[in-house]
Nucleic acid binder design. Structure first.
Lengths: 106, 106
DNA sequence: AATTTGCGAAACCGATTGGTTGCTCATATA
DNA sequence: TATATGAGCAACCAATCGGTTTCGCAAATT
């Protein structure tokens, strides 16, 4: 069972949960109220998000608060940074690379 | 059939293709050589990446060069930016929010 | 003590995914 | 013209996914 951050954020509901939780910790029921789905389905998403350590649990009596582990989001940022370097330079450079390839092939 | 950038980068092979293509445009066969899989499977990944506009095609004779549309990567960056604000501030603030919720509930 | 409430786990189902195989088409080369 | 090569597409398959229903457990409420 492979769980990584990228797979976790692939689902739009999970992205919405992340955005929701980012503001404040919430219980499964409170989260489910924001979506047009059952608590159990939300619970499954929470499990996936927790398994890849994007969320952490915090038991309060019989309630469980889910909290966003913002640090884990940096993992995505880290992967993205390699491309940030590219788009921060001019676009014409990409065209140059293209023509270079063509010349090599000839 | 919903194709978005987040679903596209969920697959590790596709992430590798993106990283590979970012450096220079490549043909499907050239890309497939970098992976332990068939050309057809790579071709499917390329199709998905192209459908969500992360890649663009460029026909050169009977070869097709796939090029990364770096602009599309900014979409991920844009989504991530809402969280960047959070992790750039101190972490203790999250704890404050937590205690606030608890007080409200009481 | 009995009931309600919040929650997770398991079983199940239809839809989707990643991969393979086999095919066709178009371009290049002999 | 005949052949080889690069590539996309369709059919198929096993695995996974998102969701629902059902159940059991533990904490709160009566």
């Amino acid at each position: 069972m492979r769980r990584d951050v990228f797979q976790a954020i692939a689902d739009p509901t999970r992205r919405a949960i992340i955005a929701l939780i980012a503001l404040q910790s919430m219980t499964p029921n409170a989260i489910a109220e924001h979506f047009d789905t059952t608590r159990q389905s939300v619970s499954k998403h929470l499990r996936i998000l927790t398994e890849c350590e994007l969320l952490s649990k915090k038991q309060e009596g019989r309630e469980i608060y889910y909290q966003l582990q913002i640090d884990k989001m940096k993992e995505i940022d880290k992967w993205l940074s390699q491309f940030r370097k590219i788009w921060e330079t001019r676009f014409s450079q990409l065209d140059n690379v293209l023509s270079t390839i063509k010349n090599i092939k000839k």
